[in-house]
C-alpha cells in the first residue's frame, strides 16, 4: 500500500469534519474492501478515517423494526437472538457473508456505503424497504442505491444506522460465484408492511435492483409457482468468465423461486 494518514476520531462530528473538505480522505469501517484495495495500491487516500470509536455498533429490536448500528459486524448480526427472532432471513444473510474472518470485521454500514454489486446486504435493505440513517438525514432504500459502487451518500456523509421494518415473511438465497463466493445471483424476497418486494444482487450491471415482474406475480399469489411465468431480460445482466448474462437471467428466476420456497 501507499503511505496514508490515519485518524481514529471519537465523535461523529470529528469524523465528519475529518472527511469533509478532503476528497482524498476515506472512511474505514470494517475494511473488508478498503484494506485489500489499499494493499493492491488501487487507491491512494490522503488519510483513512477509522469509524470504530464512534459508538455506532449495536442492535435494537422493537415491535415493528430492527435497527442495526452501522459499525455492527456481520458475525454479531448473524448471532443476534433478537435479529434471528425478528427477521431470521437477515441473520442468515449476515451469517453467509464471506468467511468467519470477514464476518468478524465487515460491517453493515461499510457494505452499504461501498455498494459492491455482488454484496449481500443491499438486497436485504432494498427488499425489506429499510431506512438508512446518516449524520445528516434518513434515506429510503429505494432512493439510496444508484448503481454499482454508487449511492445517495454525499461527501462527508456517514451512515450511522439502518432500520429494517419487520416483514411477515422473508428469505435470502445466494448463488455464489464459484471462485470469489460473492453473490453471482442473490435474491431477497419479502412480504410485509412494505408490500411484496424482491431485490436482486450480483446479477445486474447497475448493482442491486428490484425485480418488479416477480413482485407483481408474488403480489397476486405468494407462492413459488407464481414465479414460473416470470422472466427477466438478460440485457442489463452482468457477464463474465463465470456466468453469461442469459445464464444470470435464468438464475434470477431459479433463485427467486427458491427464496419464496424458503420464506414459506
Amino acid at each position: 500500500m501507499y503511505d496514508f494518514g490515519y485518524t481514529k476520531p471519537s465523535s461523529l462530528a470529528d469524523a465528519v469534519a475529518a472527511l469533509a473538505g478532503d476528497d482524498e480522505a476515506k472512511a474505514l469501517a470494517g475494511g473488508q474492501t478498503l484494506i485489500p484495495v489499499l494493499k493492491q495500491r488501487l487507491n491512494k487516500p490522503s488519510k483513512v478515517v477509522d469509524l470504530s470509536k464512534l459508538g455506532l455498533s449495536g442492535i435494537t429490536v422493537t415491535g415493528d423494526s430492527v435497527t442495526i448500528g452501522a459499525m455492527t459486524n456481520h458475525a454479531t448480526v448473524a448471532a443476534s437472538a433478537d435479529v434471528k427472532r425478528a427477521i431470521p432471513a437477515l441473520a442468515a444473510l449476515a451469517g453467509g457473508i464471506g468467511d468467519i474472518q470477514v464476518r468478524n470485521r465487515g460491517t453493515i454500514g461499510g457494505s452499504l456505503a461501498n455498494n459492491d454489486p455482488s454484496a449481500c446486504y443491499p438486497s436485504a435493505v432494498l427488499a425489506l424497504g429499510a431506512t438508512i440513517t446518516t449524520n445528516k438525514r434518513s434515506i429510503a432504500a429505494d432512493d439510496y442505491f444508484q448503481g454499482m459502487f454508487t449511492t445517495a451518500l454525499e461527501a462527508g456523509e456517514v451512515i450511522t444506522s439502518v432500520s429494517f421494518p419487520i416483514p411477515a415473511k422473508a428469505a435470502y438465497i445466494k448463488f455464489k460465484n464459484p471462485a470469489s463466493r460473492y453473490a453471482m445471483v442473490g435474491v431477497f424476497v419479502a412480504t410485509g408492511p412494505k408490500g411484496v418486494r424482491v431485490a436482486v444482487t450480483g446479477a445486474g450491471q447497475g448493482g442491486v435492483f428490484r425485480h418488479t415482474a416477480a413482485e407483481a406475480a408474488l403480489s397476486k399469489s405468494w407462492s413459488p409457482a407464481a414465479i414460473d411465468g416470470v422472466s427477466i431480460s438478460p440485457d442489463n445482466m452482468n457477464s463474465d468468465i463465470h456466468a453469461s448474462a442469459p445464464y444470470r437471467a435464468h438464475l434470477v428466476g431459479v433463485i427467486t423461486k427458491r427464496a419464496v420456497t424458503a420464506a414459506g
Binding site: 471462485a179 470469489s180 463474465d240 468468465i241
Partner: peptide, 11 residues
C-alpha cells in the same frame, strides 16, 4: 490473464 486472482480462479 482473466483469472489472475482467487476472485476469478476457482480453487
Amino acid at each position: 490473464l482473466l483469472s489472475g486472482s482467487f476472485m476469478d480462479y476457482t480453487m
